[in-house]
Amino acid sequence: MAREPGGEKIVNPNPMMSNGNNCQRLFRLLLGLLLAVLAAGLGYVLSSLPSPAPGLSKPVAEHLEASGVSNPVTAVLLNYRAYDTLLELGVLLLAPLGVWSLGVAARHREPLVDPVLDMLARLLVPMLILVAGYLLWAGAHAPGGAFQAGSVLAAAGVLLLLSGWWPGPAFSGLPLRVSLTAGPGVFLVAGVALMFAGGRMLEYPPPFAGALILLIEAAATWSIGITLAALFAGGRPVAGPHR
């Protein structure tokens, strides 16, 4: 089945442009043709890749008992490619730094008083926290893990922010910053401590690997949740008394 992915569908006049002049239409037509050719080329390349290709699933499965968890994705994330995850948590710290440097969190002066939203938040937030805790624990042997749990926690945080429950200045000062840096911080400290304990950096000794991974994942879950919710808040916290 030879299909050209997406190329022909998109050469439609953009409904936003009410009167595209001929130059612009020609440009869009040529762009569409060029992208269609590229898409066809990519489609040809993808279809000529070898079809049964095991990749790295065999080496991952062979060393799975020594990695401390039995979910291969968690093993890859937190053990085999732990350094990548450490750097990724660092990238996740850079985003709120950028957003905070651009402005202040726009909090509505009068909070929403929608009773349905309020009750929904009261019902859902505890359940979301429970689900996040379960996903964190289940990540060792089932689908789950730090990123999934952290994103569910972030959803709980976004729900709280939407229904008017903004954290007060007691949390927005030091505890917020500690929460943002807890994930990469614990990860880094664990890696360096392992280096001083006789191994290489981030080389977990197999008897303690499961516990170390759980510790790192717990800190990462909290950090990811707070980071994503802080990104939704949209700016640096306003220190000082609110209205």
Binding site: P72, V73, A75, R81, T85
Partner: peptide
């Protein structure tokens, strides 16, 4: 193969 899965999650 779980390695691309991990890459896509991050």
């Amino acid at each position: 193969d779980p390695v691309p899965h991990a890459m896509v999650i991050t």
